[in-house]
C-alpha cells in the first residue's frame, strides 16, 4: 500500500468521473447520465448555476467562465475525467479541455468521428437528439465533428411527454414534476423507427441526449442497428483513466 498525499481543497476522495450538470430539475431515472447508479464507478456531480437547458441548447453567450469554474472545481475534488449531462455542451469542449489537465468529453457527439471511421464513408448515420430544430450538420462541422458520411438528425422535441417532462424542465422542475418513462420510451423508439422508415439505409445511431440511455436497448431492439449513447462515451473515457487487472485463466 502506497503513500497518499492530501489533495488541497478536497473533502472526499475516490471519485471517478466528474459530471457538469445543466441547471434543470427533472427525475433522472436509472440509466440517465444524471443518475449515479448508471455507472460501475463513483461519479461526482456539479451543477452549473443558471445554465438552463434553453440557454445551453440555444448557445447563449457568456457561459464559458461558469462552466470552466465548475470543471476546475471537479478536477480539484479529484475527478479523473470530465463529462456533462447534455450533448450540446460540445460548445464548451474546447474551453474546458484547455482549462484542466484531465481528459474531457463533455458531449456524446464526440463519438461521431469514431463511429464514422468504423463504418463505410457512404453509410448513413442517424443522430437521435433532444431537439432537431437546433442540432444541424453545420453545428457539427463548427465544433470539429466533420465526417464524410450522410447524417440524418431527428428529435422527439414535439412529442408530448418528452416535451413536457424534459424540454420544459427548468431550474424549478417541469409543470407536472413527473416523468412517465413508458411514454418516453415509446416516443424515443417511435422517433428512431421513423428515421429508419425514411432512411432504410441507415447503418448506425448516435443517441445524443443524456436522458435517452435508459431507452437505448429498446431503440436497438426496434431498429436492430449499432447504437451508441452518452454513457458509452463516459464509460470509454473512464476505462482509459483506470485500466483493469486481469485475473482469468487460459
Amino acid at each position: 500500500m502506497p503513500t497518499y498525499r492530501k489533495r488541497p481543497g478536497a473533502y472526499s476522495y475516490g471519485h471517478g468521473i466528474g459530471l457538469l450538470l445543466l441547471d434543470a430539475r427533472a427525475p433522472f431515472v436509472p440509466g440517465d447520465v444524471g443518475n449515479a447508479s448508471s455507472y460501475d464507478y463513483p461519479v461526482l456531480y456539479k451543477t452549473v448555476p443558471g445554465l438552463t437547458t434553453n440557454a445551453c441548447l440555444g448557445g447563449e453567450a457568456g457561459w464559458e467562465d461558469a462552466v470552466v469554474k465548475a470543471a476546475r472545481g471537479l478536477e480539484k475534488e479529484g475527478a479523473k475525467g470530465l463529462s456533462s449531462d447534455c450533448g450540446f455542451m460540445i460548445q464548451f469542449q474546447e474551453v474546458v479541455a484547455d482549462a484542466v489537465d484531465i481528459p474531457v468529453a463533455l458531449s456524446s457527439l464526440l463519438q461521431l468521428p469514431m463511429m464514422a471511421r468504423c463504418l463505410d464513408p457512404e453509410a448513413t448515420i442517424g443522430i437521435l437528439t433532444a431537439d432537431d430544430s437546433i442540432l444541424t450538420r453545420d453545428m457539427l462541422d463548427r465544433f470539429g465533428l466533420r465526417v464524410p458520411n450522410p447524417i440524418i438528425i431527428r428529435g422527439p422535441q414535439n412529442e408530448p411527454e418528452f416535451n413536457e417532462a424534459i424540454m420544459l424542465a427548468g431550474p424549478q422542475g417541469s409543470p407536472s414534476m413527473t416523468l412517465d418513462s413508458d411514454k418516453i420510451r415509446e416516443e424515443v423508439v417511435g422517433t428512431a423507427r421513423a428515421m429508419q422508415a425514411e432512411h432504410p439505409e441507415m447503418a448506425a445511431i448516435l443517441i445524443e441526449c443524456s436522458i435517452m440511455p435508459p431507452y437505448a436497448k429498446a431503440v436497438q431492439e426496434a431498429v436492430d442497428l449499432p447504437c451508441f449513447n452518452f454513457i458509452d462515451v463516459i464509460d470509454y473515457m473512464h476505462a482509459g483513466t483506470r485500466q483493469r487487472a486481469y485475473h482469468g485463466g487460459y
Binding site: Y4, G14, G78, A245
Partner: peptide, 8 residues
Amino acid sequence: PRAYTGGY
C-alpha cells in the same frame, strides 16, 4: 474484511 483496491 475486504481488501480495497480502488482509486483515491
